[in-house]
Design a protein around this nucleic acid. Structure first.
Lengths: 205, 205, 205, 205
DNA sequence: TATGAATGAGACTTCATTCAT
DNA sequence: TATGAATGAAGTCTCATTCAT
C-alpha cells in the first residue's frame, strides 16, 4: 500500500519535454504516412480528415493538434517529398551536372519510384489540378527551372545538337516513365527501362 | 390528338420532332463542353453542378434532364474523349499498324494535344486517381491493351531488339510529352518534339 | 384524363420571376425575424444556425441560400436595424435639430423600445463585445458622431452652459433608460420616464 | 510518515501548508485576472480555455485544478466583481442611505469605472445575454432590489415628488454613463459628468 | 422542357474537458 | 501540483440531388 502510494506520486509528475517531443514526432509521422497513402490512392478531395484519422488510429480532433488544416497537411507532404525527390539532383550543389551525377540521379529517381510510389502518384495528381497546384507553384517552379537549366548545360557540353529541346525531352521521358510505372507498377519493366535510359543519356555520347 | 391540339394553340408553328432532337443535342454539347473545361481547370470535386449550369447558361435542375448525375456527366466526357483520342490509332481497324498509320497517329495525337488540351489534362488527372479511375478501367483497359499489342508487333516487324520494352517506352514517352505540354503549353517546343519523335520512331529504322 | 394532362402541362412551367421574388422576400424576412429573436435572447455565439433554421421552419442549408454566412446574417440585422433606429433623428436631414424634431426622436425611440425590444437588446449586446463590434464600428461611428454633433449644437442654441457635456449626458441617459427597460421591461415605468425626459430636455428651457 | 519522508528527500526544505496555500491563492488570482481581461475584450465564447491558460502562464489542465469549468470561472469572476462593486453602497449595512453614503457610492462607482473598466464591460455584456444571465440572476436580483429600495427611500426623504420613478431614473443614468464610458473611455468627460451627477443628486435638494 | 427553392448528408474545424504521466 | 496529448460533441458551411411549379 505504501509502495503503491509512492509509485503513484512518482507517476504524477508530467512527462519531460523530451518525452512529449518523441510522442509528437511519432504521431506526426503516423499522420503524414496515413495521409500520403490516402491522398495518393483516393485523391485529396475524396480523402476526409475522418478517414485519415481512422487510418492513423487517432481522433479527428487530434489531427489539428499536429496540422493547422487539411491543406497544410497536404502542403507538408507534397513539399517535403518534392525536396527529397529533387535533392538527389546535383547533390554537391555546385550548379553543374556531371555524368556521374546524372547517372546517380536517374538511379535514385527509379529507386524512389519503387520505394515511394505513393508519393509519385500524389505528385502527378497535384500537377494536374490547377486549383490545388496553386498552393505549390512557387515552391516547385524555382527548383524545376534550375534542374532544367543544368540539364540543358549538360547536353550542351555533351555536344547535343539542340540542348534545350533535349533537356525538355529528357524531362518528359522521365516523367512519362514514372507516370506509366505508378499507373500500373506490376506490368512495367522498370529495370530494363532504367538501363535503356542510362544507356541512352549517360553512356552514349 | 386532343392534347396536341391544345399544345398547338400555344405554339402555332410547333417544332418538329427532329427540331426538338437537334435542340436537345446542342444543349447537351453545351453542357459537356462547359463541364470538360471546368473539370480540367478546377478539378472534378472543386467543380459544382451549379458552376457548370451557370457556365452552360442553363439551370441546375435541367442538368439532370440531360445527365443522371455528376458522375455520369464525367463518365460521358472522359469515355467519349478517350475514344476520340484513340480512334486515330489503326484507323482501318485491321489490327495491324503500318508505318504510315503510326505517323498519322503521332500527328493526330499532337494535334489533339493542341486543340483539346483540356481533355488531356482531365485524362491525366483521372489516371492518377484510382478511386475515380475505377469508373473507367474496364472501358480503358481493353483499348489500351490492344494499342500496346499492335505497337509491340510494329516494333517486332521493324526489327527492334526488345519490342515489348520498346512499346512501353514509346507509350511512356508519348504520355510524358503530353504531360509536360499540358502542364505548361507555352514553354514546350511541341513542334520540334513531334519531329524528333517521328524521326526516331517512324523514319529511323 | 385529358384534362389532367393539360393541367399538368400548364403546371410544368417554372414559376415566374415575380413568384420567385416573392418567395425569397418572405423567406428572407422569416429568417431575419427568427435570427433577431434568437440572437437577442441567447446571444450570437449561443445561437446555432440549426436553431435559427428550426425556428424559421426551414433546413439548415437553405439559410445559406439567403445569407452568405452567420456573420453576414448578423450584419444585415444589426445594420439595417441601426439605420431604422437612427433614421428618426433629424428626419428632414438638414443637419439641424429643432425642438420638435428632438421631441419626435425621443418619442420614436421609446416607441421602438417597446415595439422592437429585441433589437435594442441585440444592439447593447453587440456594443459590449469588441470582437463582434469590429464588424460594425465603421457603419456605426459615422452616424453616431453626426448625432452627437447635432445634439451639441442643439444644446448650444438652447443656451446650456456646457453643450458638449450635456450632449454626452443626454446620450448616456437615453441609452441607460433603454438599457434598463430591455433588461426588465415589466418593471420599468417607461411612460413616466419618457415624460420626464421630454420635460427636462424639450420643455424646460 | 513513510510517504512524507520520501517526499522530503526530493525537497529538503518543504513548503509549509501556509506557503502552499499562498501560492495557490496567487495562481488563482492570476487566472481570474487573465480570464476577466479576455472575457471582457473578446467575449466569453470567443475566449478559449487555452488562451486563458496561456495568458496566465499555466497549462490547460491546471486550470481545472482551480476551477471546475469555464462556466464556473466566469461565475466566480462576475459574482465576486459584482459584490465588490455594490459593496460600497450603504457601507455600514444599516439599510439606510445617507447623503454622504450616496456621494461616497457615486465616487466609488466612478473610481471603479476607471480602475476596473474591464469588469464593467463584462458586466454589461452579461446583462444583455439572458441565456448567460440566468446563471447570476438569483445572486444579482436580491442585491439590486435592496439597492433600489434604499434609493427610493432616500429620494422620499429628500422630498422628491415621485421617489420610485426617481430611483429608477437614477439607476438608469448611472448605468448609461458607465455604459458610454466603457464603450469609448477616451472620449468621455468622466470627471465633469461625475460632478454634474453629484451636484444634481447630492447637493441639489 | 425549364426553373431555382429546398433538403440533408457530410465535410472541415474548434474547443471544453479528460487523462496518463 | 502540473503538463499537454487526446477525445468527441457540436458548430459552420457546401453541394449533389429532388421537387413543386
Amino acid at each position: 500500500m505504501t509502495e503503491r502510494s509512492v509509485l503513484n506520486l512518482k507517476n504524477m509528475v508530467p512527462r519531460t519535454e523530451q518525452q512529449y517531443e518523441q510522442i509528437r514526432e511519432q504521431k506526426r509521422d503516423l499522420i503524414l504516412q496515413a495521409a500520403l497513402e490516402l491522398f495518393a490512392d483516393e485523391g485529396f478531395h475524396s480523402t476526409s480528415i475522418s478517414k485519415i484519422a481512422k487510418s492513423a488510429g487517432i481522433s479527428k480532433g487530434l489531427m489539428y493538434n499536429y496540422f493547422e488544416s487539411k491543406e497544410a497537411l497536404l502542403k507538408e507532404i507534397v513539399i517535403s517529398g518534392f525536396i527529397d525527390l529533387t535533392g538527389t539532383f546535383d547533390p554537391n550543389h555546385d550548379g553543374i551536372l556531371t555524368t556521374e551525377e546524372l547517372e546517380f540521379f536517374i538511379n535514385q529517381t527509379f529507386e524512389t519510384l519503387k520505394s515511394n510510389t505513393k508519393y509519385w502518384k500524389l505528385y502527378f495528381a497535384i500537377m494536374m489540378q490547377p486549383s490545388v497546384l496553386k498552393m505549390f507553384e512557387d515552391d516547385f517552379a524555382k527548383i524545376i527551372r534550375s534542374i532544367f537549366e543544368m540539364l540543358e548545360e549538360y547536353f550542351r557540353k555533351k555536344g547535343y545538337e539542340n540542348p534545350e529541346l533535349e533537356s525538355k525531352l529528357f524531362g518528359a521521358i522521365l516523367d512519362g516513365l514514372a507516370f506509366h510505372y505508378v499507373t500500373d507498377p506490376s506490368n512495367f519493366p522498370i529495370e530494363e527501362v532504367k538501363k535503356t535510359l542510362i544507356n541512352r543519356y549517360v553512356r552514349k555520347h
